[in-house]
Structures are given as C-alpha cells and as structure tokens.
Design a protein around this nucleic acid. Structure first.
Length: 910
RNA sequence: GCCGGGGUGGCGAAAUGGUAUACGCGCAGGACUUAAAAUCCUGUGGUGAUUAAACACCGUGUGGGUUCGAGUCCCACUCUCGGCACCA
C-alpha cells in the first residue's frame, strides 16, 4: 500500500459528485439520436456488499459503454438490484434480519459501492425488484401468462430443497444440488404453478442455434449458445405403440415408447417403464397378487431414493417384473415388461424399448435380468458374432442384419425406412421431444411477489374459472368445462407451429383451472405484508399461508369467500423482464419520489388503468438491448427465462421483437488463490479497501489488465502496484508538459497513430488487457524519448485512457483545458468527447527491421529503409554479405530464396 | 460417455503461418538519499561455452504430419477447466 503523487481519493470523489451534479450519465431517453443500450446483469444481493468479482464484471461492461459513448452513441447504462427472492432472503435469514429491513441496508451498501467504482450508471432510473412499483408488474406478467394459457397448476414430481424449504425449477438444480445453498435436492410430489416454456422450445432453440429461417441471429458467446442448445435438448425420434397382454395373451392396454433408434427394433427383447409411469397404476389391478407386492415395494423404494442415491448407485440396474408382455408388431414377439428406475419419467414417454445389443444401458439391464440379446447391426469392426460383452455393443455406426426388410442398409438409412414403415402401419408416429421442461414458478417462501391468483371452491365445484368469464370470451380464450380435456403434460411442445400449440395448450390449461381466477388488474399489486413469522417451514407451505388476513378474499367470479395463493414467484421471474423496465422507469404510475407505503395496504389497492409497465414508443427505440454483459452461469437460467418471456410478449403484441439481447458477452470469473470467490471458501475480496488504497482507477485498470475479459483471472494485489505506478507515470507526464510545454519526436507521433488504431480495435473486441498493454508500450516509448510528449499527443492519450480510468482522465482533461472549475461544463467532460481518429499516412517510419533466416532459422536481422526493404535484389546482396549468414551457408548450396517484401528473407540451403 | 474452452518463463499473460515470451508482477544489481520510502536505470527461458562479448544447441502438454518456415494449420493422444448426462 503506497502513495501516488496525486490524491486519488479526493480526485475521484470530486469527479463522481461532479458527474452526478451535471447529470452527465443521465441519458435523455426521449431525445437520444443514436440510442445504445449497454446493460450489465444487475446484482442479486446475497451478502453485505459487492466483491471484487462483481466489480470486474461491472467495470468490463462500463469500459465498453464509455467507449461507445465516445463514438457518438447515446449510451444508456442502467443499474438496479435483484433484491427480491431467495438469494437475499437466505442471507437475511442467516444474519437474523427481516428481509424488508435487509433490503434497505443492502440497497445503501450496494449502491454506495457501485457509485465508487466510477461506472457511468444512470442513477435516475434504477430498478429494484422488491419495489412495489416494480413487482406490481411482475404480478401483472404472471396474470398475462395465465390468461394466455402459459401458466398452469399441476401436480408433479418436483425438486425440493430441504435447506431452503422450497421447490426449485429444473434449471436451479446443479448436479442434484440446490443452486443457492448447495444442499442435496429431494423429489416431492406437489401441486405447483408452472410456466409453459416448452411451448417455445422450438423457437428458443432455432434462434440460439442460428437455424432460424428469417429469424434472429444472436451475436452471443459461443459457449452460452451451446449450453442453451444442450439444455433445450431437441431429439427427433418416433413414438412406437406396443400392445400389452397378460400371460394368457389377453389384452390389457398399451405402452408407448419413444426412441431415436427404431432401426434396431428387430433386436428388441423387452420393454421398461419408469416407476412413475401412469400405466403402472393401471396394471397393478390386472397382475398377479404376488407380483403386485414386489412391484409396490420396488416403486416405493424408487420414490424414496434421493437424487444422490441414484447417482451413487451408478449404472447398477435394478427393476421389477410385471409378468405382462408387450407385442413387437414387427415380429409378433412377446417382450416382457419391466419397471426400472433407470428410465426417467420426464423424458420421452417414460417408457423405453430394450435393444440390448445396441444400447449400453439396455445391455446392462438384459445382463442383470438374463434377457436375450440379439445382434441386428454389423459394426464397423465387421464383428458379427453374438454379443456377450459390453464392448461389442454397437451404437453409432453400422449395417443392418437379422432385420428383415432393413438388412444391408446402413443404420441412418434404416432409421428413416423403419419410421416410414411404422407410420404406414399405424404402429408409430414421428415425434420431436425436448429435454427442456416447464418452468416451475412457485416458491414456498416469503420474500417474493405473491402469486396473484385466487382460488374459489364454489366455482371449482361448478367447473367455473376465469376461462368461463366474459373477459376470457372477449379475448377469445373462453372455455367450457364440458369440452374434452386433453391431459396436458410437460412434453406438450411438439409442433413447430407455435400458434396452434399455444391455442391447444391454452385450452388444455383452461380445462384444469377450475376455480382459479387471476387478481383483476385494478386490484394489483398484491402487496407482500410485513410479517414476523417469515421463516420457511418444513411442511411445504409458504409463510403467508399462516396469515388469514392475507389470504382471505372474495372470488372475482362469484363473489363468494375465496382464498389467495400464498406461494410467491421464483426470483428469476423478477429478472426475466427488468431490461424492459429501465428505459421506461419514469413511467411509474405513482410519483417516483413518493413510493407507496409498504405497510399501508389500503393505499396500495389503487385502481389502475390497463397500462403497460413500459412505454411502447420508448421501448421501440431502445430495445432489444444492444450489448448485454454477464456471467455464463446464467446460460440456462436468466438468459433462457428472459428469452421465453420476451417471445411470449411478442406473441401478445406487447413488444415488437422476440429476442431481448442482440449481443450477449459472457465475462470470465475472477479467481482468488485458485478458487472461485465465495464466502464459504473465505477468499472474497472486498473492492472497498483497494479503492481506498489505490483508487478506483488503478483497480479498474488492474482488473481489466489481468487477462482477456472473457477468461477472468487470478486476483493478486501485488500486481496492482504496477498499475498504480503507471497511472503515476502518466500523471508526471502531465506535470512535465505543464512546466515546459514540450513538443515530441516523429517517432512518438507515429506511435500514437498506431496506438489509437490498436486501442480502438481492442476495445471493440473487448481485449482490454492488450489495449492497456499497448498504452503502456507507448508511455515507455515516451520515456525513452526523455519524456518528450507534445500537449496534443498527450490529450489524445488521455482520451484513450478515459474509458478505463475515468476519474484521472477527467482531471487531466480538465487541467489541459486550462479552464476554471466554474467554467468547466458537462460538454467539456472528457467522457463526451469524440474518440480520436487515426491517420496511418502520418506514420513515418524510415527504418524497418528485416528478418534473415537460413532454413527457417533466424540468423540475422537487417535494419534498412522502407524503400530498400521492398527491393529483393538489394536485400539479397545484404543478406549474402552478412557474416552470420555466411557462417551457415558456407559449403552449402542455396536452392531457394523466399522473400517477403519488407519483412523477411529465408535462404533454403542443402 | 457426449459437447465446448484451455495447457506458452518463477507468476498474470502477448503473438494476421514469418525475430516466441510484448506488457505487467516478482526477483537481482545499480543511481538518488545520512537512511528509508517513493522514483529512475540495467538485467532476467534453459543448457553449454567464455575473462567478457560474440556463439551453439534446446525450448509454447505428448507423438506424428503439412510447409522454405508451425505456439498458430491437420491427425492421434494426454492433462485440465466448464456444460450436459442411466435422455432411450
């Protein structure tokens, strides 16, 4: 910790105050001529304050925003807090503070820190997700989802975190553990609210895979696009129907199996269902008593098995025999039907046909249960013997055999031929399935937006719901309880035509929504009351469920007594639309400055018009987001949810674009002592202390210099000394100019032109580390020239420095202006100057260095004029005159001479 | 298992197929100073050789290949970091 020759603490706070006072960073949303929306993922407060990893990300985003502004764009760079939800609540619980009080404290801390890093945030338009003015609209979004059939309630096997005491969406379970607390997640069968994100699976995939026809081409980090692709997990295959019979051959129903490899179906020898498969219940009534007990036992064991147990068990195959058979209609063969937990209910149909010769899992199962194994593919190794070892199981390539009409075809052709055949006979139907599941949106927690739904027993009894109201009819989504109820499930997104899918799913949803009404628009928001028993319980019931005064209400349909939903929505819903809010934030219904009193419920149920949370005109101008920066850990979380919400809004005609983020840049992670910064590892670095001892500018520079922005880096404080030194050197350059108004050499002038080009290029590519390095090279060159730099050249250097070190750049620019403080206006600020232009014709380099090689090895270098360097004969003469070259070609014959004009000559000798 | 990054000095890292290790840290030596801090200067991949310089050889995870020339392109492998995973 050391001192620099200028007082950075004083200087930085001086300019931060000045920028605020001059509204330098408050974008004029309405008047902007060249809007550029530069957004960084807003932080979710899960600690007392930001750590240096957060600052790294914000700085990287800010450097780019500042660069764009200097290129003449009206850059909007907003900031906010994602402080509603489980992250913040868990921390509040940990330190024993009420989440509402905690929110106020984190707001102060986070905003204070975000101020001190010197980013160009527009502090006049912040968004806090726990603000009533904000979550009122989060609830509105939920209602819209419901009315459009994209929100539904369903009993399902869901992830339950025993530590957070709530359910979680699939995306929020990482390696069988809770995304928030790291505890092992259990399965519970609960009735929950879901968002039908699967209805958009096709479109979500197309755009991100770049396969959209006339669609959107996303300029996104490759690894994020691939992660989304994998998560959506599109598989094209076929659903094959197998009739099921008992020992006597009597028909007892049918089982549908999904497969991508129907070509191997002549080799099928058994069928396996997941323990959760609906057919299991059905068959329990038809099978022998002694088998029934065994099956029930197996199923119960499977239910109670946690995810971690399953993982620990590895590939060991267990199962229960049903005594029933599926008929392979290709061959007429009877295939025994089993129940096993290696088949998962959530994918395909929850039942698979076993082809042990050509699928490793099937092979393992067949071996464990002594089932026949038939070879139907001759592999690339030509092996045609019977399959007895797992190494013989052919999966990827081969030619069909023992397969009737398929014999001799390669497997890829055979797949198509078989699908055609099965469809023609009515035994199968081609199908597309996705790994993506519907978004489980309810949380049994306190700190979130109450789900704005009301349940009425009376209406439920009468088959009434919002879908039977006049409003629904006027929106064209009416539904009567008597129409056929097609069972909706998580795999309903199959057709590529989203309109018809939406119509279907909407009706399907309506049929199951008897008794449910959304809170009418004019009764929003449903305010989260302040309660003292806010801790989550073990019973799967939200804290609000213990508060009659909250949940007792009247039915919007029949006016009878009814109850509110007491679960709150997932945090990721809060952040799924915040980018739409920022530019329109001044459109808040109430006066921005007089926030609605959170405690006073009666003042909140204000009649509201059917306005939108965003201004359509503003939104058309500013969205989608031009540049979005954030962590890759949100690849399948926030980024997927936001895309889904935006697509839905587009279909409802509320926005005119379907992708929220045109460009997304995934920044790297800051590592400390070889590990990701985290509280539990105790390696969290607080930026405050470094700002205090080195200044925000030096810290910013150091963070950007550590390595490429998309790779992150290892934080070490010793290296920051170097940055601090360099800033000091620049400061002293100014002192030299101030005292002896020096001019500089052509060498420096030429170098500056090249520097301007280099820094601009690097900034566009976000290669901040090399941009800074080249500025250092430039100042080193100036030092070699005895510190001689012209005032003009120095001014240009300050412009290049401005995005990285905004405070010191502003101070130097101010000093260079020669103005008094009172005369220095917002227009004079270094940050609104135009990025300097470069002119390479000004580059004067008389001498160049030409490399001389013999057989590709460098043996000498020749310094000569630009002009002579182009002259092959001249260079050749010099090369042959070189002592060093002579030594290596002596007694040998030059068979070839390679000449790259102005750069290199290579003599090939033998 | 599948899909993606990545392996370069003591460390963070740089290099449109053309002088590998720019820039920074660290380290060593020096200047300034009564001394320290700060600042500035010089050196810094390895081995060998030399009074010294010149010099030679080796060097970008491993093994091959293409090329006048490979950190960079191709093939095979290996380690590592991320994502997905009994997904049919």
């Amino acid at each position: 910790m050391k001192k620099v020759t200028y007082n950075f603490n004083q200087l930085e706070s001086k300019w931060q105050t000045w920028w605020d006072r001059k509204l330098l960073n408050s974008t004029n949303i309405e008047a902007a001529k060249k809007p550029y929306y530069n957004l960084m993922m807003f932080p979710y407060p899960s600690a007392e304050g930001l750590h240096v990893g957060n600052m790294y990300a914000f700085t990287g985003s800010d450097v780019y925003g500042r660069f764009k502004r200097m290129q003449g764009y009206d850059v909007f760079e907003p900031i906010g807090l994602d402080g509603f939800g489980i992250h913040s609540e868990n921390y509040a619980l940990k330190i024993g503070r009420h989440p509402m009080d905690h929110a106020k404290i984190t707001e102060k801390n986070y905003y204070g820190q975000l101020h001190r890093i010197g980013a160009m945030f527009d502090w006049s338009r912040t968004v806090e997700t726990y603000d009533i003015d904000y979550y009122r609209w989060t609830q509105w979004l939920f209602v819209q989802m419901f009315k459009h059939g994209l929100a539904y309630r369903s009993k399902a096997e869901v992830n339950w975190c025993p530590s957070c005491k709530t359910v979680l969406a699939d995306e929020q379970v990482i390696d069988g553990k809770c995304e928030r607390c790291g505890n092992i997640v259990e399965k519970r069968s609960l009735e929950q609210w879901f968002f039908r994100i699967t209805a958009y699976a096709g479109k979500l995939l197309e755009n991100v895979a770049g396969s959209a026809q006339g669609g959107v081409n996303l300029d996104w980090s490759e690894k994020v696009r691939i992660a989304q692709k994998n998560w959506i997990g599109k598989k094209e295959g076929i659903n094959i129907t197998y009739p099921v019979v008992d020992e006597q051959g009597k028909s007892v129903g049918e089982v549908i199996c999904f497969t991508t490899r129907p070509d191997t179906n002549f080799g099928a020898t058994f069928v396996v269902m997941a323990p959760e498969h609906p057919f299991v219940n059905q068959l329990l009534s038809v099978i022998e008593k002694n088998k029934r007990a065994a099956i029930t036992k197996y199923i119960n064991a499977a239910y109670n098995k946690s995810e971690s147990n399953r993982i620990a068990e590895g590939r060991k195959k267990t199962g229960a025999e049903t005594g029933l058979y599926c008929i392979n209609q290709l061959t007429g063969q009877k295939m025994p039907l089993y129940i096993s937990d290696f088949v998962v209910m959530g994918f395909g149909t929850g039942a698979v046909v076993g082809v042990p010769g050509h699928d490793l899992r099937d092979f393992e199962f067949a071996t464990a249960f002594h089932l026949p194994i038939i070879r139907v593919v001759k592999g690339v190794d030509g092996d045609m013997s019977s399959i007895t070892k797992s190494a013989q199981v052919q999966e990827e390539e081969g030619v069909m055999m023992n397969s009737g009409f398929l014999d001799g075809l390669n497997i890829h052709k055979a797949i198509d031929a078989m699908m055609d055949y099965l469809e023609k006979n009515g035994w199968g139907k081609r199908i597309v399935t996705y790994h993506l599941r519907d978004w489980l949106i309810s949380r049994q927690r306190y700190w979130g937006p109450p789900i704005p739904m009301i349940f009425c027993k009376e209406c439920a009894k009468n088959g009434k719901s919002w879908f039977t109201t006049d409003e629904a009819a006027s929106l064209g989504v009416s539904f009567t309880a008597h129409s056929s109820s097609s069972k909706s499930n998580n795999q309903s997104a199959r057709s590529e035509k989203s309109v018809t899918v939406l119509e279907k799913t909407r009706l399907a949803a309506a049929s199951e929504m008897a008794g449910w009404y959304p809170v009418p628009d004019d009764k929003l928001p449903v305010v989260l009351p302040r309660i003292d028993d806010y801790k989550p319980g073990n019973d799967g019931v939200a804290p609000l469920a213990k508060h009659k005064e909250f949940y007792e209400t009247t039915c919007p349909g029949c006016k009878a007594k009814a109850v509110r939903e007491t679960d709150v929505s997932d945090t990721f819903l809060d952040s799924s639309w915040y980018f739409l809010r920022y530019p329109s934030v001044n459109k808040k219904i109430e006066n921005r400055r007089s926030k609605v009193d959170r405690e006073n419920v009666s003042s909140i149920f204000n009649p509201l018009s059917s306005q939108l949370p965003w201004d359509l005109k503003v939104t058309r101008r500013w969205l989608p987001v031009d540049m979005y920066t954030g962590g890759a850990e949100h690849s399948v979380l926030h980024l997927m949810y936001s895309r889904f919400v935006t697509m839905a809004l587009k279909d409802w005609g509320l926005v005119d674009f379907e992708e929220p983020f045109t460009r997304f840049y995934a920044h790297g992670l800051v590592i400390k002592d070889g590990a990701k910064m985290s509280k539990s590892k105790g390696n969290v670095v607080n930026p405050d202390e470094y700002i205090a001892s080195y200044g925000a500018d030096s810290l910013r520079l150091y963070l950007m210099f550590m390595g490429p922005f998309d790779q992150g880096g290892d934080f070490r404080d010793t290296a920051m000394e170097g940055m601090s030194r360099w800033v000091g050197r620049i400061w002293r350059l100014w002192e030299a100019i101030a005292t002896n108004n020096s001019d500089c050499s052509d060498k420096v002038k030429s170098a500056l032109q090249k520097l301007i080009q280099k820094v601009g290029d690097d900034l566009e590519k976000r290669r901040y580390n090399t941009a800074i390095a080249s500025m250092m090279e430039f100042t080193n060159l100036v030092a070699d020239e005895e510190g001689q730099i012209g005032k003009n050249e120095f001014k240009q250097l300050v412009l290049l420095l401005a995005p990285f070190a905004p405070h010191v750049a502003e101070e130097l620019w101010f000093l260079l202006s020669g103005k008094k403080e009172s005369e220095y206006s917002a227009k004079d600020s270094v940050h609104v100057q135009l990025w300097p232009a470069f002119d390479l014709t000004k580059v004067k380099e008389e001498r160049i260095t030409l490399v001389v090689q013999v057989n590709g090895k460098v043996r000498d270098t020749i310094s000569l004029s630009q002009k002579d360097g182009q002259d092959k004969a001249h260079v050749e003469a010099l090369v042959h005159a070189s002592e060093r070259v002579k030594r290596h070609i002596e007694g040998k014959r030059v068979v070839k001479t390679i000449f790259i004009s102005g750069k290199l000559m290579n003599l090939v000798v033998v």
